[in-house]
Design a protein around this nucleic acid. Sequence first.
RNA 1: GGGCUUGUAGCUCAGCCGGUUAGAGCGCUCGCUUCACAUGCGAGAGGUCCACGGUUCGAAUCCGUGCAAGCCCACCA
Length: 865
Amino acid sequence: MTEMEKVYNPSELEKRIYADWEQGGYFAPSGAEKAFSLVIPPPNVTGALHMGHALDETLQDILVRWHRMLGDSTLWVPGTDHAGIATQNVVEKKLAAEGRSRHDYGREKFIEEVWSWKKRYGDRITGQLRLLGASCDWSRERFTMDDGCSRAVREVFVGLYQKGLIFKGLRIINWCPRCHTALSDVEVNYRDNAGKLWHLRYPLAGDSKRFLIVATTRPETLFGDTAVAVHPEDERYRDLIGQEALLPLTDKKIPIIADEYADREFGSGAVKITPAHDANDYEVGRRHALPSVTVLDASGIMNENAPMRYKGLTREKARDLVISDLEEAKLLHSIQDYQNKLSVCYRCDTVVEPRLSPQWFVDMPRLAAPAVEAVRSGKIKFYPERWSKVYFDWMENIREWCISRQIWWGHRIPVWYCECGEIICAKETPAVCPKCGSDRLRQDEDVLDTWFSSALWPFSTLGWPQKTADLKKYYPTSALVTGYDIITFWVSRMIALGLAFMKKPPFHKVVIHGLIRDEQGKKMSKSTGNAVDPVELIREYGADALRFTLASMASAGGQDLKLSAHKVLASRNFMNKLWNVARFALLKLADNRFAPEKSLADEWILSRYQQIINKTTDALQKFYFGEMAQGLYDFVWSEFCDWYIEMSKLGLHKETLLAVLNGILRLLHPLAPFITEELWGRLGNAGRIINASWPAADIRLINKSRETRMAIVIELVKAVRNIRSEMNIAPGKKADLIVLYSKDAVNEALTEAKTYIQQLAGVEKIDLAARLAAKPRNSSHAVLDGAEVFVPLDNLIDLQAEIARLEKEKQKYEDEISWLKKKLTNKNFIEKAPPEVIDKEREKEKNCAEKYRIVDEQLKALKIS
RNA sequence: GGGCUUGUAGCUCAGCCGGUUAGAGCGCUCGCUUCACAUGCGAGAGGUCCACGGUUCGAAUCCGUGCAAGCCCACCA
């Protein structure tokens, strides 16, 4: 055993210990029968660790370390996501800084560029996971675009295609004019927008003096209008149905049609129909066989279908010009302020354009049914349970999932087109067309939604489609730990595809936690500058402190977590406390003078320790991380350090100290792996704590009578300390104690614990008596449960201070008694409350009354003197 | 428009199945170089548990309504 440094220095030891674990192969599963497995929600490969990851990974690592200590064959699969659009955007931005675009490179070269980017930054986030202490099995590290995952993607695609569950279709999809790609419904965010509703006048073709007023938020799309719709039962327009209107600013005529989609209550009741630029209008267009005219190109620029004057303008510029032109033409009826929502791209925040285009879709409505059933039947459970509602709401209203993206970085769609018209969907690149034999095949240009490969993650990472040993042993995984924000993106799709291809759900438990917010409760983001960097916090306070903080904030309800450096500081202080108590233990153990027998303090702490084992284990089973952390914090600081250690200074029982201290280290290890490993070693334990066994409570050591006795001692010490402090007894000055007891338990407790009291309360002489000839004069006074305590003061007592103290005390008892009296004289209470409750209240009343009597007596005596 | 969550000490929160003198951390006040720790020790101050109803012998805890805050979902131009 070496002497410990006085200062706890996390950064040095954390680095050393992680390397030791990794080199020692401690993260790989060992051969036990029972399996526990997690797959990491893969962070973006070129990203940096943010607070959300830190929380997610901490919670997973807690479970993993706990199960490893339980002796399970524990596997945590790490990996990263290629993050199609996000990564491509980052690389494009870099190229743009050099004045180039991806088109200057061409597809092949550009992808090479992204791969080299990936190689350069791919290690950053995994390195940061190591800093956090994540004990994942790095030998099994995966990437969503590695060979295995890519093979799984093709296998699933082809499988779904053959069943008709993947198909290509012409739809209005969400199009990001900046990313130049389609997006799925979940990739669109909504933003409140203080916009305008423009009321336009469309002249009638038959009578250009008459107008139809249509209301729109998107006047620039009017060039794509191919009809105006009114409600079929709208009396105002009945005569116009079948006639034509003149499209303003053009020489086009468009039909006036009847469709129930037109809302009579809204605006004038007539609505312009732009099938190519609005999903609803598209449906109307289909019902009425209207043509679709696209007026905006892929970048959101007006194209040749708009009059020359507008061609080449952005959406925004075109809108302004259209409005001013309409005004000039006296075709603008009115403008109204209008609150609506803008759809924006979740990657770049650009306003999304509904766009008609051919895309690939997964038939989610068909795949969703078994996925809903799995949760409904309880095969998969959400923790907390309420999140299953979000899941159901999503899955039961699920729509087709648009999976094709018009970007280059990603899994290329495994579909080839032959000149002969044949479409070939295959796992491997076909050499020739099976129909005509031509070798001139052209692969589909699109890549798949990033979330497509993520959806396969629980089984692709375990080796599927190969029948690997890992797959057999570790699928289904034991749990999924993630934030509620990706239930729709990820959880739902993993469940659906896991069931479709593995016939078993990918996990049985979904542990949902809240999102990290700043001190004000705002979302952390780089752009607002309120993001706290976990790596910075680790550097400053240590990974253990950060982990402990995150875990203790993860409440059972899964609320969002407001993080501040203050909290991490408090956790760091706790680690420091732990460090020092171990230091104390080492000093004492080197001393080599031990008490031969267990004392009251030993029996008490052993009893308390058994209970904290159970409490910690319980909390873990329920995924109550906050409760786990809080419980251990209180036990270690307020019981073990404040009382047991202080008492053990009078005579240390070596076995007890070591048992409890080592137990604490093991219980804390999942939360604070580094310091516990370090101290475990310093205390001379064999092996590593990372694979030490999880403590099991020995209920024979739970001893309530010793706990009761200790409670008496603590109560007395606190009472004396209070007197010392309030009566200004100098800290170094020893006091005397006269205890007048009315319960034998007090006499026994104080007799047994005499030396503790002397030490902890700064007391010299203790006189215990069942009765006194006269109560001591010139003393400060306290009343306990079953005893009266006098602390004689050698200089004249400050009467006013003492009276004030006792008056306060008296008031407290008075309040409580009146409350209890009211209760106990309530007939209903006596008749209906359970007898044990009544007894308890009676007992309380008796005790209070007695204490009140004593304090009152003492006060009277003081006032006379 | 639908749904969810939250409202407890100055701040951040814990209080699960109703009976606690309503707790913790930070902050605050007072006193301490007590030989593990001033990243510490001891003692305190501070709360009509958002409001109003209801259920109950009994509610911070269950139910309803209202107010306030936040989030998610939804194709009304």
